[in-house]
Nucleic acid binder design. Structure first.
Lengths: 147, 147
DNA sequence: TATTGTTATACTCTATAACTATA
DNA sequence: TATAGTTATAGAGTATAACAATA
C-alpha cells in the first residue's frame, strides 16, 4: 500500500472487522431515522417478531433466542408490555411460567412495522442489485462463525 | 416461503439488517475471545490505530473520526492514557490543545496488536476465500450509505 | 464569538448474583 | 435439585448541557 512505516499500525484500511462495524453503525442510524418514530429499538423489533412467529414463547426461550441473559430479556419483555404490545398469559399446569402473546395493539404495530421494515431493508440495500443483496447475506452468514 | 400467516411478521429470515447484526455480534465475541487478554476494546483499538497513524491527532479530531461525542472521546483517551499507552503533549502556540502521542508502552502494545489483529482478521474470514473476503468488504462499503 | 477540553449528569444496554415460587 | 421469573446492583458506552480557558 504505502512506504509509510506507520502503515504497519493501520488496522482499519481493508479490515473486514472495521468495515462490518462501520456498516452496522450506518444501519443503526438509518433504523432510527426511518423507524425511530415507532418507538422501538432493533432488539425490541427482533423480540416482537420472535414473539409473533414463535409458538409458546416465554422469557427464557426469548433470552436463548436473542443470546442475552435472563434479566436483559426481562427488560425487553417489560418494555414491550408497558407499551401495550404484548401480554403475559398464565400457563395451565405450571404456575412458574407464562406465555408471551401479542395484544391487538401489538398486532397493529406489527402491521405498521411490516411496511416500514420492508422500506428500511430496501433502503439499506439501495446501492446493491438484488443478486448482490443475496450474495452479501450469504457471505455474512459464513463470516465469524464460532467453532 | 411458507403458507403460515405468521410468516408475514417474520422480519428476520432473509433480512440483511438481521444478518449484519448477528455477524457483528459473533465478531465481537471472537474479538474478546482472541484479543480480550490485551485489555482493549474494539473502539480503543480503533482509536489507538488512529492515534498511531494519524498526524497531529487531538481529542476533537478523534471524536469526529470515530463519529462520537466529545465526552465519549475523552473517556477513551483517558482510558488509553491510564493504561500508559498514549500521552497528551502540549502544543506550542495554542494552550487549549494538546496532541495525542504513543508512549513506548503504546508502541509495544501496537506490535502485539499487529500480530493478533491479523490472526483475528484471518479467523473471522476463515470460511471465505480471499476473493470472497474482498467481495464482502466491497459490498459492505456500499451498504446502508447515507444520503 | 468560536473552539478545545472538561465536568456533571443521565440514559440504555448488558451482565452477575442472590432471591422467590414452583416443579 | 432444577427451572422460570424476578430483584438488586454494577459496569460500559453513549449522549446532552453547562463550564473554563483560550483563540
Amino acid at each position: 500500500m504505502s512506504d509509510d512505516p506507520l502503515a504497519r499500525f493501520d488496522f482499519l484500511t481493508g479490515s473486514l472487522g472495521y468495515s462490518l462495524r462501520l456498516t452496522q453503525v450506518r444501519m443503526y442510524n438509518l433504523f432510527f431515522e426511518m423507524i425511530g418514530d415507532l418507538g422501538l429499538t432493533p432488539a425490541r423489533v427482533t423480540a416482537l417478531s420472535l414473539i409473533a412467529t414463535g409458538d409458546d414463547m416465554n422469557q427464557a426461550k426469548l433470552a436463548r433466542s436473542l443470546d442475552i441473559a435472563g434479566p436483559s430479556a426481562l427488560k425487553i419483555v417489560d418494555a414491550l408490555e408497558a407499551a401495550g404490545l404484548i401480554c403475559r398469559l398464565d400457563v395451565q399446569g405450571d404456575r412458574r411460567r407464562y406465555v408471551l402473546a401479542l395484544t391487538a395493539t401489538g398486532r397493529a404495530k406489527l402491521e405498521q412495522l411490516r411496511v416500514r421494515m420492508a422500506e428500511y431493508e430496501d433502503r439499506i440495500a439501495a446501492g446493491l442489485s438484488p443478486a448482490e443483496r443475496e450474495q452479501l447475506i450469504g457471505l455474512l452468514n459464513r463470516t465469524a462463525l464460532p467453532g
